[in-house]
Design a protein around this nucleic acid. Structure first.
Lengths: 144, 144
DNA sequence: GTAACTGCAAAGGGTTTGCATATTG
DNA sequence: CAATATGCAAACCCTTTGCAGTTAC
């Protein structure tokens, strides 16, 4: 499969945009720690490698990475937008602990199938979906 | 069933909080147009009935209404928090047309059950979930 | 009476934007 | 060299908070 770096380069070229050291560094940093990073967290990591990079550039680059199809915004309802790699990764949903923030990736074929079916019943063609399960994990429950 | 107004009054009394004309008006306005209102939209409607009400009071009252169990925050990822009546309403998810914005409320027992089961398997106690299905509705599909 | 509530305006947090300068293709 | 990107700081949007004065219980 094409490397993420190449996908991004390709996207930029197609849009008449330019590859820059900053964009390279930001994507690279994101790829290294492919967690569910927020823009600010990524900014901190990027800054460790190159102090001169500005916060706005990180925000702008994340937007481009999203448009290029490499990453996707997540919504953990914690006030910040987080991103995860979507290119070459299989789809999954999230199970989130409301107490400690732990985040488990889940996938259930029964649910996926029912979602398609439900949409179809309403005359919809499904393009995507978001499902977040919020709860309390075992550790946190026992702490109380 | 107990009226929403009474549920709210009861909640306030229990918490040693006070019923005020503003709180009454805000709940009343919300009940009248039980859409998926944002705080600002509600504020605009409230203001039409009483110009003297402040924006902060609407925010504060929505928080109280949520705590009382009457309403619940929604997250359509459009930058604002919206609320919908939850008291006396059955839980449901949303099927949204990406083209025209149509929003259908859906509920599927198979999915609900699987969600509980999935959480349980990971040691989680589920408190809530969000599921949004995005697609294209029949009308929009045929328009093209 | 006194704890809770109000409106106002200011502050807050995350994100975006305007601008002068620097860089890419 | 022309179009894009950059860093900085200011602006932005939605929401929360501090405060002095008001009101419900």
């Amino acid at each position: 499969m094409t490397k993420p770096q190449d996908v991004f380069a390709r996207y930029l070229a197609d849009q008449n945009l330019k590859m820059t050291p900053q964009r390279r560094l930001i994507l690279d940093t994101f790829l290294k720690q492919n967690d569910h990073l927020s823009s600010e967290e990524l900014y901190a990591k990027v800054k460790r490698r190159d102090k001169s990079v500005g916060q706005a550039t990180v925000y702008r680059t994340l937007k481009l990475l999203n448009e290029s199809g490499l990453i996707e915004p997540l919504d953990f309802a914690d006030g910040v937008t987080r991103y995860e790699m979507s290119y070459g990764e299989s789809h999954h949903d999230h199970l989130i602990c409301e107490s400690c923030g732990e985040n488990i990736e889940i996938l259930d074929e029964t649910i996926e199938a029912r979602q398609e079916e439900l949409a179809r019943q309403h005359g919809y063609t499904l393009t995507r979906h978001k499902m977040y399960l919020y709860g309390i994990c075992e550790k946190c429950r026992k702490k109380k």
